[in-house]
């Protein structure tokens, strides 16, 4: 598999930062960065990462299922993650999540037909003091209200 030069550079660095013979350590970081570029963790990517890190593909399969941020199906271009854990729950996270479902017309871990959005109800994302919180891809949004979320979605839609 070939990746962008930036990703290749990251991979190259990843293979050097762990102790000699411990390149298995790079498996998860490689998958995390590669899935952003590939869209999700494909079979091909599994084999590729296994090869580069010198592990069995099964050892990659073992971690994919374990870590909740590794996805084997493509997400939307904008992956909307709504926290409903305790601090967010107390400040309206659940209503926000229900609202997002309605606005986007999709359920948990589903993708809109145009592939633009996907939605996920997530656990605490470390924004509790500024709850309720939403993360779009890797961007945090704090003190989110239903109106703010609608605006955000609209903006993203325009951005494409």
């Amino acid at each position: 598999m070939t990746f962008s030069p930036a990703l290749e550079a990251r991979f190259a660095k990843l293979l050097t930062i762990y102790p000699e013979g411990r390149q298995r350590s790079a498996v998860v970081p490689m998958l995390m960065y590669a899935q952003d570029e590939v869209g999700c963790v494909t079979r091909e990517l599994v084999e590729e990462v296994a090869r580069r890190c010198g592990v069995q593909p099964m050892q990659v399969d073992e971690v994919i299922g374990y870590y909740s941020m590794l996805h084997t199906k493509p997400l939307g271009k904008y992956h909307i993650q709504v926290c409903t854990n305790i601090s967010c729950l107390l400040t309206g996270g659940e209503e926000l999540y229900e609202h997002a479902k309605k606005t986007l017309g999709i359920g948990n871990k589903e993708v809109t037909p145009d592939g633009l959005f996907s939605l996920e109800e997530v656990e605490c994302m470390g924004a509790c003091s500024w709850a309720p919180a939403v993360e779009v891809n890797y961007d945090f949004h704090h003190h989110v209200t239903c109106e703010k979320l609608d605006r955000l979605i609209e903006d993203l839609r325009k951005l494409k």
Binding site: M58, Q59, Y66
Partner: peptide, 16 residues
């Protein structure tokens, strides 16, 4: 091997 976690943790074979 084993994949997934929690109550969904599941034994897996080597060729996927």
């Amino acid at each position: 091997g084993i994949t997934n976690r929690g109550v969904l943790a599941e034994i897996i074979p080597n060729e996927h």
